[in-house]
């Protein structure tokens, strides 16, 4: 795969011969290049394909690229450049949306490693579903009784469990390309568990009592 990628991605600008740091736009003369079929989101932003990314660098990189390929920059030029800029911008925005969120990034790395999608594997680790059901019931009861103390402690323990699951994801996400099928499935189960925790936490966010905001 890496060999194929270097063959299809231009390494130097065909217009001004400047080294291309990302494959879709020249930093020197702003010539645009169509996205090669083999390029993934990391390639698009010129980032290493790994889970650990410097968040600030990621933002800076995205902004610089987005500026360079912004369709406004090519308005009035040859129509195909204008169209290409629009298409590239959409792809770069999508790449940014996925990569800036650590959970989505982990999910995307699993996809690149040909791991199971959420539709392929809907399981969660161990008896987590029973645990989520219990948390939901406790939450409902605490709300019915306006028991703020229990609500606060529930929220903390859900956040702790979410953090714990996320730590496990972070530990394994860089090695997915070497993982076997069992490990990839376990990774998908962890990702699924995050969805349940986030749904619980979102429920807190929409709850006026636990927010201490009677206006909502």
């Amino acid at each position: 795969m890496p060999g194929l990628r270097t063959m299809t991605l231009p390494s130097k600008c065909l217009n001004c011969d400047v080294e291309l740091s990302i494959p879709i736009v020249c930093g020197g003369c702003h010539t645009l290049y169509p996205i090669p079929q083999t390029a993934n989101y990391f390639d698009l932003l010129g980032l290493p394909q790994q889970f650990d990314l410097d968040g600030e660098k990621l933002s800076d990189t995205y902004r610089a690229i987005a500026r360079n390929i912004h369709p406004d920059r090519f308005a009035g030029q040859a129509t195909e450049m204008d169209l290409l800029a629009t298409k590239l911008s959409a792809q770069v925005n999508e790449a940014w949306r996925v990569l800036k969120d650590p959970v989505r990034r982990a999910e995307y790395l699993l996809e690149l490693a040909n791991g199971p999608s959420a539709a392929d594997c809907r399981e969660v680790p161990g008896d987590l579903l029973a645990r989520v059901m219990m948390l939901r019931e406790d939450l409902e009861e605490a709300r019915d009784q306006s028991d703020e103390q229990t609500l606060t402690s529930l929220r903390c323990s859900i956040q702790d469990e979410r953090d714990h699951a996320f730590d496990n994801i972070a530990k394994r996400a860089n090695d997915l390309s070497l993982a076997n099928d069992t490990e990839k499935k376990a990774f998908r189960q962890l990702l699924n568990s995050i969805k349940y925790f986030d749904s619980l936490l979102a429920d807190f966010a929409s709850d006026p009592l636990s927010q201490g905001n009677p206006q909502q």
Binding site: V124, A130, K195, S199
Partner: peptide
């Protein structure tokens, strides 16, 4: 039977 939908977090 306890089941869930990971897409939306429903249980």
């Amino acid at each position: 039977g306890i089941v869930g939908a990971p897409e939306c977090g429903d249980v």
